[in-house]
Amino acid sequence: MPAYIALLRAVNVGGTGKLAMSDLREMCEAIGFTHVRTYIASGNVVFESRLGEAAVRQQLEARLEAYAGKPVGVLVRTAEELAAVLKANPFGEAAPDRTVAIFLDTPPAADALSGASGVNSEEMALGPREIYVHYPDGIGKSKLKIAAAKNGTARNMNTVAKLLEMAQA
């Protein structure tokens, strides 16, 4: 059975989108997902399902909207796709806690980075359905805004590696 990783947008970040990870696990189990595990309180869930990626996303988004009373964005990757994201990280020599993959639903446009504002020391690169960003001075000090990333969700490389480890277990 395929292993999936679901990444929720704007959950338990900055006081918005409150969601207990125990509630998220229960929602996933109610849908019929198996071997459900969450990682940290920012909306990361690993599970198995016979459903395809689109159906997994649709069912989880519907359940989350019923729970929250508003849409909650969900980005889904298979374990194989997450392994490819980690392997393709163009900033592999950089500190993993200062490098993120911004996960998107669709491939970013070739010019997705040209409209970025607030660029200082950050480095950016495009992936198949990701935007990679290295923040040498730390993400907390950055003023970087990437319009193409508006509907995405970012995870640092430490989190990506841990989620992959969980999905492969």
Rank of each mutant, 00 (worst) to 15 (best):
D137Y: 05
A84W: 05
A101I: 06
V85T: 15
R98T: 04
A112P: 02
A30C: 04
A94G: 07
G43V: 14
E122R: 04
E29M: 05
A109C: 09
V46L: 09
A68F: 08
C28K: 08
A95C: 08
C28A: 15
S22L: 07
G115P: 00
A54N: 09
S114Q: 15
M27C: 02
G73W: 10
H35V: 01
E26M: 03
L82W: 06
E29H: 02
D111T: 13
D137K: 09
S42N: 12
P128A: 14
A110K: 12
V85C: 09
A84V: 09
K18V: 10
L64S: 01
A95H: 14
E26G: 02
R37Y: 03
H134R: 07
V45K: 09
A55Q: 13
C28Q: 06
L86V: 13
V100G: 06
V56R: 09
E53S: 08
A95R: 14
H35T: 02
Q58A: 15
T38A: 01
E81S: 06
G32V: 01
P71G: 06
I102L: 10
A84T: 15
A101N: 07
A109V: 10
N44F: 10
Q59L: 05
L86G: 14
E48S: 13
L19V: 10
V100R: 11
P108F: 11
D105M: 08
P128E: 15
P90L: 13
R25D: 03
E122W: 09
A68K: 07
L60F: 06
A84E: 15
S117R: 12
E80M: 06
R50D: 14
R129I: 05
A54F: 07
L75A: 02
P90A: 12
A62G: 02
A54M: 09
Y132D: 08
R37G: 00
A55T: 13
D137S: 11
E65K: 10
A20L: 12
A84C: 07
V74T: 02
L75P: 00
A88C: 07
V76L: 07
T78H: 07
A109Q: 13
F33Q: 00
A94E: 15
R25F: 12
R57P: 00
P108H: 11
S121V: 10
T38W: 03
R50I: 07
E81L: 06
A66P: 00
M124G: 04
R77K: 05
T106A: 15
G73D: 03
L86N: 13
I40W: 00
F33A: 00
K87L: 13
